[in-house]
Design a protein around this nucleic acid. Structure first.
Length: 587
RNA sequence: GGCCCCGUAGUUCAACGGAUAGAAUAGAAGUUUCCUAAACUUUAGAUACAGGUUCGAUUCCUGUCGGGGCUACCA
């Protein structure tokens, strides 16, 4: 690899010039910025105290020495303290010639990525979309860098929330099913949840009007009491309640599965909260025995994290039931038991739970689990719309299914408006609208740094120009038709071929892919990859505009350009697939 | 109140502590020699504020101001 080779060279040179004591200083190259000539840049400021000379002279000195000692470097220039090294064209052309795709060594440990993890009382919304796209893409990226990955989700299938939907269904909609209503199961259940809330509010208001305190009214509303009763019955495994519960959850799963399918995400293993919600308690009691936790007179168990700058947190309520934190302790332990070679456990969860995970990981550490170090919270910011924030209370939540419909519809409208896609059959068109609409959505969301809050603009995302999914897809399709039109020759390369600056830049960009992939994997951040795909697209368009490809007379040059085009198309397709985005050959 | 995250062109996004802060859109002006003009070229425009650390700060530290989140015997 280029970096390794250059590092060795520079190390030797520096020791030759300034002696052994310099060998502790790390050597880092950066890509030369495009307004300067060169491929890699060495910043010489760190070496000044050894050279005892000015930045310019030091850089000049190092450059001269390097030039003399290696064939790889054919020239250099110095700008202030920056030594720009120019690598031999032969290196780049040979790299392209011997290109075999990406090779990462398979790693031993397993990575688990948790994402989605919805409640079963309402359909998925825009926030879940970001969650799913991130989790899925990160999984793909990790796999692409040689890791074994298990994609999981926890389904929050029990608790008061699902009882609310069940109760509303029994009271107001008994007999209604997805089949009878023609509605998607998760939407139907969601409607009952909303119905519950309406009735509940009315009841609370009535009680308050009759003179009751707000708080008291909230817990005394008849429908809420019934819901709590139902939860108790559920916990006692009451057959009738469990029957309804299972039926309605199944409706929801069926609906979710359709949504996941459209989103293009999958899971390898599901954890159901109903099966795991009791597992953390024993561990907490054990921790209590070891003095890690403390109990109150009423029997509740707490962890005191004030010394770590955090709060006191409850783990077991006075009535003996566990809280969310306790369950999470349990599932984490369970997972490391299920997968003994688990190295990292990545939780894809919104940033409103940053504190929760901070506490969770700290508790796991205190409990003495060495694997706690491998737990990561992949935190992401909220998604807003140009119209403002989503608020469930104000009914401004964007439903995931509706959103996807809208994206596909916009793709249709824009395509028709532009008069493209002539000569496509109706079914081909439909398929393409889906690919374009979803590509727009995914690309727009994934190109943003996960931790940042972002604004999703459906209109802008589906523009066929600019930093968008459809533009990347379109460029890929254009390269593919170009390649289809070229009579395929054996794409042999002569490594001494002359290349233009645009071509060299394109090769360098292709070369950068591995680095970008490693960075994306290390930081669990698909945004690097998305922006890389776009950079490649832009460079390709410039290349195409600058030099002829098909019309090039010189066979060696034409072969080179065709090969370069092939590699670019491959890279784009690869990067996009790791984002979960399809790239059509024609569009 | 305490804790965490974010403040970059009109807008949406970039920038391992490095060079003249990059793109894209919207604006202005151009370009039909190979693929599909859904392209390309040129142009104008930004680091919230004040300090500090250092050869160098959008990046690290402190404070101020703005936006968001968490701070339940909810999940």
């Amino acid at each position: 690899m280029l970096e390794e080779e250059l590092t060795d060279l520079v190390k030797t040179t520096l020791t030759a010039l300034y002696g052994e004591r310099i060998s502790d200083i790390p050597i880092n190259f950066q890509h030369t910025r495009k307004e300067f000539e060169g491929d890699r840049t060495l910043v010489v400021f760190p070496y000044l105290k050894f050279s005892g000379k000015s930045p310019e002279i030091t850089a000049e000195e190092i450059g001269k020495e390097l030039l003399g000692s290696s064939e790889l470097i054919v020239d250099y220039n110095v700008v202030k303290g920056f030594l720009n090294l120019i690598v031999d064209n032969v290196f780049w052309v040979n790299w392209l010639r011997n290109f075999k795709g990406l090779e990462f060594e398979a790693e031993k440990g397993t990575y688990m990525v948790e994402y989605s993890s919805p409640n079963t009382n309402k359909p998925l919304h825009l926030g879940h979309v970001r969650n799913n796209l991130l989790g899925y893409s990160v999984s793909r990226i990790l796999e692409a860098t040689g890791k074994k990955v298990v994609k999981v989700q926890v389904i929050n299938d029990r608790g008061i929330h699902i009882c609310k939907s069940m109760l509303a269904w029994e009271t107001f909609g008994k007999g209604v099913s997805p089949q009878s209503s023609g509605k998607k199961g998760d939407h139907l259940v969601g409607e009952f949840y909303v119905k519950f809330d309406q009735v509940y509010k009315e009841e609370v208001k009535a009680l308050v009007d009759s003179g009751m305190e707000q708080k008291q009214a909230e817990s005394n509303a008849p429908i809420m009491k019934s819901a709590k009763d139902m939860l108790l019955k559920w916990e006692e495994k009451d057959q009738k309640v469990r029957g309804t519960w299972k039926m309605m959850n199944d409706w929801v799963y069926e609906g979710f599965n359709k949504t996941y399918e459209r989103l293009g995400v999958q899971f390898d293993r599901l954890y159901y909260e109903s099966e795991t919600y009791l597992v953390g308690k024993d561990e907490v009691i054990r921790g209590l025995g070891k003095g890690i936790f403390e109990s109150e007179n009423d029997g509740s168990v707490w962890v005191d994290l004030t010394e770590d700058g955090l709060d006191r947190k409850i783990l077991i309520r006075s009535d003996g039931t566990s809280v969310y934190m306790t369950q999470d302790i349990g599932t984490a332990i369970l997972r490391f038991k299920d997968y003994p070679d688990l190295e990292q456990l990545v939780y894809t969860v919104g940033n409103e739970q940053n504190y929760h995970f901070k506490v969770l990981f700290l508790i796991l550490k205190k409990l003495g689990f060495s694997w706690a170090e491998g737990c990561v919270h992949l935190s992401y910011g909220m998604v807003e719309l140009p119209s403002g924030k989503m608020k469930s209370r104000e009914g401004t939540v964007v439903d995931a299914d509706d959103l996807m419909d809208e994206m596909v519809e916009t793709a249709r409208l824009k395509s028709e408006e532009l008069g493209k896609l002539e000569g496509f059959s109706e079914s081909e068109k439909e398929a393409l609208y889906h690919v374009i609409g979803m590509g727009a959505l995914k690309y727009f969301i994934l190109k943003v740094d996960p931790k940042k809050q972002m604004t999703f603009n459906p209109e802008e995302s589906i523009d066929f120009a600019g930093n968008t999914g459809p533009f990347v897809q379109y460029t890929h399709a254009r390269i593919k038709t170009l390649l289809a039109k070229s009579e395929s020759t054996s794409l042999q390369l002569d490594s001494t071929i002359d290349i233009e600056a645009v071509e060299r830049n394109l090769i360098k960009e292709l070369y950068r892919y591995k680095e970008v992939l490693e960075l994306s994997a290390r930081e669990f951040n698909p945004a690097y990859l998305a922006n890389y795909a776009y950079d490649l697209v832009k460079l390709y368009n410039q290349f195409y505009q600058t030099v002829p490809v098909l019309k090039e007379e010189n066979t060696a040059k034409r072969n080179f350009r065709l090969l370069l085009s092939t590699r670019v198309a491959e890279r784009i397709a690869n990067a996009m697939s790791l984002l979960g985005i399809a790239v059509p050959d024609k569009m």
